[in-house]
């Protein structure tokens, strides 16, 4: 009989642990998240998409801004998945490169602006949870994740643009 009760104890223990982890996530993360996302949503509504579009169009001329400021604006203001619709402001052969840069930013941004991709927070939060269990501050990781994210999307935009153009040229010769 003690074996069975031990089994039941172990079984329930699994979900008590899960429950306490859930409580930790809800009390630790949700309150700040709700207030922060409400604030950012309000700003996006007040600024309005049209003003953002004109600003965004201006940044598509040069490669340096087309794969940094442009995707940041589209991911911040339109969030995932509508941010890719800003791809309509660039020429055809640049659209894959813009998509690559924008989609590669939808996770680095969630460290500081979770509203941009609330459906996929745990890419960052999963790892950040380990850092908080060690009692270390998160700000440093979140900021470096964002900054490295910007460098990576610039690199990805440039590499993908080069590959796309060579493939287009090869196709036109074939």
């Amino acid at each position: 009989m003690s074996f069975l009760s031990g089994l039941a104890e172990g079984f329930i223990g699994l979900f008590n642990e899960g429950g306490s982890v859930f409580m930790g996530l809800v009390t630790g993360i949700i309150p700040t998240l709700v207030v922060l996302i409400t604030f950012v949503n309000a700003i996006i509504k007040l600024v309005g998409e049209e003003k953002v579009e004109n600003l965004a169009k201006a940044t598509t001329k040069y490669r340096l801004t087309r794969y940094t400021i442009f995707p940041i604006l589209s991911v911040f203001f339109l969030t995932n998945p509508m941010c890719y619709s800003f791809g309509r402001f660039v020429k055809e052969e640049l659209k894959p490169a813009f998509y690559d840069a924008a989609v590669s930013f939808v996770h680095p941004i969630t460290g500081i602006f979770p509203h941009a991709n609330a459906g996929e927070l745990f890419v960052y939060l999963g790892i950040a949870n380990g850092i908080t269990t060690l009692g270390l501050p998160l700000g440093d990781l979140a900021m470096r994740y964002l900054l490295v994210g910007i460098v990576v999307i610039l690199m990805r935009g440039i590499v993908t643009e080069a590959i796309t153009k060579t493939m287009i040229k090869k196709r036109s010769e074939a």
Binding site: N129, G130, I131, L134
Partner: peptide
Amino acid sequence: VGVLVGVEIG
């Protein structure tokens, strides 16, 4: 995988 790595870091 992010969660798994997080648990291991913890």
